[in-house]
């Protein structure tokens, strides 16, 4: 009987029967669901909008261009007739980014191995944070640091490379031996900037290697390095590839650090130890303030190309990650 009184309302009226059909709470659910789904659609609209709006300005730019947009090196969109093309920009962007990747990938993988499998467990998380902090440094600060500190300190190694390996076309310096404001400088600073993302992605996959595989290798009498070669690195291969793609994507789009370091020119040169070169992003940053109508459209057209390239690289990276997630159910 005491239990029954609890269910009765104070006035002693019979309790209100909850209605099973047509309950009003579902309106709240519907609104909330629509709100969240609408936001998600809005996000997709933005992505589509980026492509549409950039494209809408790319068309008039290409119409105004009197030369081939893809093969022309120089950039005089506001002269008459308008002359501009992305050949030099594309070359410089790829060269500096690949250089950065070449330098950052081995270091990033090493750092990830260190944090995941070499460092004492107790320290590993803290050391991981430390490397992640590198990603927090704003790019303009890296640009300033690169230009005023790193580049002057890199003259020694640049001249060493030029003097001893000048027979390799990349290290030849037939035109200038100042060793500053070069593609090599830009590549090193970009490498520092993409190192955190590479090491973070690799670290995640290395930590996911099942303990069983590591123990299996050790039980066969593998040394620590052989365990890495046998169990950890093969398991993490797709993760390493996608980290490289993500790092590449970031390097391709980096703007101010490159703009501060590089002395821009519209040439296509292999000589990474000589000043000069240009990238899509740096060109936009540097030309923007001088650009008039056609000039702006031309810059937007080049931005469209950069957008498509980074989109492809990032999609490839995500695709590799997703495929790995789907097929890693081996154990």
């Amino acid at each position: 009987m005491t239990q029954m009184t609890e269910f009765r309302s104070p006035q002693g009226e019979p309790p209100v029967e909850p209605q099973l059909a047509g309950s009003p709470v579902r309106a709240g659910d519907r609104i909330f669901r629509t709100l969240t789904a609408g936001s998600s659609v809005f996000l997709l609209v933005i992505i589509a909008g980026i492509a549409v709006f950039l494209f809408s300005r790319t068309v008039p730019a290409l119409q105004a261009d009197s030369v081939n947009f893809f093969t022309e090196r120089t950039w005089f969109p506001d002269s008459a007739p308008s002359v501009f093309g992305i050949a030099a920009l594309a070359w410089g962007t790829l060269l500096s980014s690949l250089l950065a990747l070449l330098l950052a990938l081995p270091v990033g993988i090493g750092v990830a191995l260190f944090i995941a499998h070499y460092a004492p467990r107790r320290l590993a998380t803290g050391l991981g944070y430390l490397i992640d902090l590198l990603a927090a440094v704003p790019s303009v600060v890296f640009g300033l640091w690169g230009r005023d500190f790193l580049v002057p300190n890199m003259v020694g190694i640049s001249s060493f490379l030029a003097e001893n390996f000048g027979w390799i076309p990349f290290f030849a310096t037939p035109n200038s031996e100042t060793y500053t404001q070069t593609m090599f400088n830009a590549g090193v600073v970009l490498a520092v900037m993409i190192l955190p993302i590479i090491s973070a992605v690799c670290r995640e996959v290395f930590l996911q290697v099942p303990q069983g595989h590591i123990e299996a290798a050790m039980a066969l009498g593998a040394t620590r390095w052989e365990t890495m070669r046998m169990a950890v690195l093969p398991f993490g291969r797709s993760g390493m590839i996608s980290s490289a793609m993500l790092g590449l994507g970031r390097a391709l789009g980096e703007t101010v650090a490159v703009a501060l370091i590089l002395s821009t020119s519209y040439g296509i040169s292999l000589h990474i130890l000589e000043p000069g070169g240009n990238t899509f992003a740096a060109n936009i940053a540097l030309q923007y303030s001088f650009a008039q109508d056609t000039g702006i459209d031309a810059l937007i057209a080049s931005g469209m190309v950069l957008f498509v390239i980074t989109l492809l690289v990032n999609m490839a990276a995500r695709w590799i990650i997703a495929r790995r997630a789907a097929f890693s159910g081996a154990n």
Partner: peptide
């Protein structure tokens, strides 16, 4: 080991 653990790769 308890769980079969051939190297998947």
């Amino acid at each position: 080991f308890q769980r079969p653990n051939p190297f998947p790769t």
